[in-house]
């Protein structure tokens, strides 16, 4: 699985290659995924806690307003069977659902991500590439009560206890801290809930389909021949570079910045021993790119790949 062709070692996919993984779809095609970093996870969690806090404030305000109106309408404050009782019931149930249902509800959706995770750009996925089930979502979020709410309760009680905090409290606190910091101690950044549910959290990808890299190579120029035909590169002139350089050139062409084009054109001309500066840098680079890619792709068909300019010729 890990020796798949999907990952070309010389292509850097993410900022931290240690987080790159392969997930095999049920069709057997390996897909590249990137684990969400611990920082992204923490950021998403903090955002979610803020959202939960906001919703809980809204619920409390709603209950107070309702209670106020009922009391203004003559309801007895102590009569818990009256409308005030329903406000009370609503309050307890709404808070329970908010604390336990928020994560489950959003992770069951199409994007498998809470609001916080969406903002950070991460999502939950099944570790083995199979379907992400409702059971898995429930399992990973039930464990959250131990990982998150228990440490928070401990912090709260430790703060309230002041100096009377005893040894057992601290021992307990360290113990629950272990759960909170669990993701830092494994390479897949799994928290306890992920271990139990068979899930992991990965980064979202959203790439746009760029244009053809070198469109001008095919364009018909004034004299009726393709523009690429203006330049002829010999085998020797094309064999100085490998795939890494081709990709660098692709990036330069895609970003289309005058300065970079000039610089790269100059250095390529120098390398292959051509006269410097013919004026149309872009046309030259596109022609060279097309010729180089055609050559490398041709040898690719025969299973020969050249990593970069330092790789030996076969």
């Amino acid at each position: 699985m890990s020796s798949s062709r999907a990952v070309d070692p010389w292509i850097r996919r993410s900022a931290d290659p240690k987080l790159d993984r392969i997930m095999v779809t049920p069709e057997g095609v390996p897909l590249n995924v990137t684990i969400a970093s611990a920082g992204a996870r923490a950021g998403a969690l903090l955002l979610d806690l803020v959202f939960i806090q906001i919703i809980s404030t809204v619920i409390a305000l709603l209950c107070q307003t309702l209670a106020f109106f009922f009391m203004a309408g003559g309801a007895d404050f102590l009569d818990m069977d009256g409308p005030l009782g329903f406000v009370g019931i609503f309050y307890f149930i709404a808070n329970f659902l908010l604390l336990n249902g928020y994560f489950i509800y959003f992770e069951l959706g199409h994007r498998s991500a809470t609001w916080g995770k969406r903002l950070v750009g991460i999502r939950v996925a099944s570790r083995d590439g199979s379907r992400l089930t409702a059971e898995a979502i429930i399992a990973r979020n039930i464990v959250r009560s131990v990982e998150l709410f228990l440490p928070l309760t401990f912090l709260g009680s430790a703060g309230a206890g002041g100096t009377s905090v005893d040894l057992t409290t601290w021992a307990g606190f360290l113990w629950v801290l272990m759960f909170l910091l669990f993701p830092l101690f494994n390479k897949d950044r799994l928290r306890g809930g992920d271990v139990i549910a068979g899930t992991w959290v990965i980064q979202n990808v959203k790439k746009n389909l760029g244009d053809i890299v070198a469109p001008s190579a095919a364009r018909i120029s004034a004299d009726g021949s393709p523009a690429a035909a203006r330049y002829h590169f010999s085998d020797a002139e094309l064999s100085v570079y490998g795939e890494y350089e081709l990709q660098t050139l692709e990036n330069v062409l895609r970003s289309d910045q005058e300065e970079a084009l000039e610089k790269v054109a100059t250095s390529i001309r120098q390398k292959i021993g051509w006269e410097p500066g013919s004026g149309d840098e872009r046309a030259f680079l596109e022609a060279y790119y097309t010729a180089l890619r055609a050559r490398l792709e041709r040898s690719m068909k025969f299973g020969k790949r050249r990593k970069d300019k330092f790789a030996p010729h076969e």
Binding site: R127, T133, E135, A136, I138, A139, R140, I142, V195, I196, A197, G198, T199
Partner: peptide
């Protein structure tokens, strides 16, 4: 083992 048991237990 943990994820099999976890999904069953979650139900």
């Amino acid at each position: 083992a943990a994820s099999d048991a976890g999904k069953r237990a979650a139900l």
